[in-house]
Design a protein around this nucleic acid. Structure first.
Lengths: 249, 249
DNA sequence: TGTTAGATTAGGTATGACCGAAAGCACGTT
DNA sequence: AACGTGCTTTCGGTCATACCTAATCTAACA
């Protein structure tokens, strides 16, 4: 019998048809080939163009939809409309990581300490009047001490995200959006926010806002760093107290 | 004729069946209900359990797959296996944002200046011996001045990601992973990396590595800040020169 | 005791049908 | 002329069924 031919083949990869189609459309969208809001061909049209089944085409569109690259509308003159990803898409994937990996609140606060002072610095450099309005608005609704905890925390998130927006850096904005929301939900049910904490927080926010308004990056960094650090310390302190109160579960 | 009743209805939302199923399974996965690697029911099994068609079930699974929550294997004893998202999932969505929004290199470098010094600080605090090995390895392969530009840049990415890993903060790691890769691809075809830049970069990396090894957070921050800042300045400088060289086009 | 050729079980794809939502149109009323 | 009303059309959403292909298991065979 003939000996085995020493033919070597590299492992053959058989990509899924829907992935291939999704990748091709994704590249063309990212290349900027279609203006934002323009309509892709209808599903049935794509079927005839690609010789694929409708199920395959639909899965490809679903992939793009999850990735935030298209928005799908139903009804007549519906279909897939090109959309460029925004901070929300980053925020949602960060959210999945945080929840899936059970990232602890302490790690979230550490991350905020790492990122947000830099946001404040950039905000002080690049802020517009509209950015200032947004920050003032958040400060106002936070100064309503009679509001519910959720309202307070929502205004808190708005302010922090507002700082990120004022940095005019979309990456940082998306990241801070996710981080702020995650901290919000972790904080919402822990009950260590009392009137004193509220007033301290509001004072700190106003102080940072003033630095941003005055376009003083150094002060903005310093004050933001102090704010997020002391907030983190307060949370850790309460965490420890809670652990003592509830030794096991 | 009777006057219109002042009945007000809020807009009714009709969620898609596949979204509902995906959301339910996602929540259960994120809640930690299934250990990592465990198998979800097969498609046909889900069909009987949910009274949905297989196409719907498949779309739901596809959503979870894109979100990095399950990995799907074909063949006998295949199916959907639970997976917890890692830095890659964040990296890919950040990548989509960068490319879809045409984020300029200058903005990427600005973001790195904002985030990476803090990474270095945390790395100096929490680094393990394995982290140091990873950094040393990257430095070694970068010291090979005869290597190609791609090899140099890859080692560069490895080092920067290595710092993020050493921070032991999964959020920052995922973010820096995406950022480093994006800077890599933007830098790969610009040709402003010469021998001098290589040596300067290597020196800076070694200097930061030393601070991390010595668990000196302040030095790590300072040196990293200086490194990424001077790198950014060098890039901007070359950008301007390039614009002059190529006035239109 | 390996090797290998089926059998089995999973996902991947293709058809074809029908439902429901939304935009457009035409008719009819005011 | 202006405005509802309802029909028609054209989309995506869902379902059912069939068949293909990949990966594994199993059992016969050399």
């Amino acid at each position: 019998m003939a000996t085995r031919q020493p033919v070597r083949l590299s492992p053959v990869r058989v990509p899924k048809a829907s992935d291939v189609l999704a990748t091709e459309m994704r590249e063309r969208i990212l290349r900027g080939e279609f203006p934002e809001g323009s309509a892709l061909p209808t599903e049935r049209e794509l079927v005839t163009q690609t010789d694929m089944s409708r199920a395959t085409v639909r899965e490809a569109l679903r992939i793009l939809e999850v990735q935030g690259l298209v928005r799908i509308k139903t009804g007549r003159s519906g279909g897939a409309f090109v959309q460029h990803p925004d901070g929300e898409s980053i925020a949602s994937s960060v959210d999945l990581l945080i929840r899936g990996r059970q990232i602890r609140l302490a790690a979230l606060l550490e991350t905020r300490e790492a990122v947000e002072p830099a946001c404040a610095q950039l905000a002080a450099k690049y802020r517009t009047d509209a950015d200032l309005d947004r920050l003032d608005l958040a400060n106002e609704s936070m100064s309503d001490t009679s509001g519910s905890l959720s309202d307070f925390l929502q205004a808190n998130v708005d302010w922090h995200v507002g700082v990120a927006i004022a940095s005019h850096n979309e990456l940082l904005t998306g990241f801070m959006l996710a981080l702020s929301r995650a901290i919000y939900t972790s904080t919402n049910n822990r009950g260590f926010i009392n009137t004193e904490v509220r007033q301290t927080t509001l004072r700190a926010h106003r102080s940072v806002t003033t630095a941003i308004r005055g376009q003083d990056p150094d002060a903005a960094v310093r004050r933001m760093k102090r704010h997020v650090h002391s907030y983190a310390e307060a949370v850790v302190e309460v965490e420890e107290r809670t652990e003592i109160d509830l030794p096991d579960r």
